[in-house]
């Protein structure tokens, strides 16, 4: 597992049923592109997060395939419909096989 990987997710605590909410996510990750060289001139191997997904109560909101051109510390903002109270699950997939996840519950107000 790449060291120091830490997700941050911003989801409102409540929403009206059927409301569209804005979600922001950020995760600390080097996103080593595989195109840089170290001091000795050797290529630093690619090591990125290659996929990010957000689901709500098991239904897909967004599924993103990522390439090395996504910046260090990947950031996404998008909108989700909240049909009922429940749980968002955010998942990041690392090239090295690690999977990082974060969960946020939301109430209907």
């Amino acid at each position: 597992m790449a060291s120091g990987v830490k997700p941050r997710v911003k989801v409102p605590k409540t929403a009206a049923a059927g409301e569209a909410i804005t979600i922001k996510t950020l995760i600390s990750h080097k996103m080593e592109s595989g195109q840089r060289k170290d001091k000795e001139g050797n290529v630093i191997p690619r090591s990125i997060i290659n996929r990010f997904t957000c689901e709500f109560n098991g239904e897909m909101v967004i599924d993103v395939t990522m390439e090395p051109a996504i910046s260090t510390n990947p950031y996404f903002q998008f909108e989700a419909t909240v049909p009922e109270a429940g749980e968002f699950v955010f998942t990041w997939y690392d090239d090295d096989g690690s999977v990082y996840d974060e969960k946020k519950t939301i109430e209907i107000a």
Partner: peptide
Amino acid sequence: AAGNPEPGVATFNFGPLAAAQAASTRIRL
């Protein structure tokens, strides 16, 4: 990113609960 050595950046696939087919991110050029 048409001028990057590797042009691919990302593909956003929207599910049934996407409230808009829209997204923001930060990229390398």
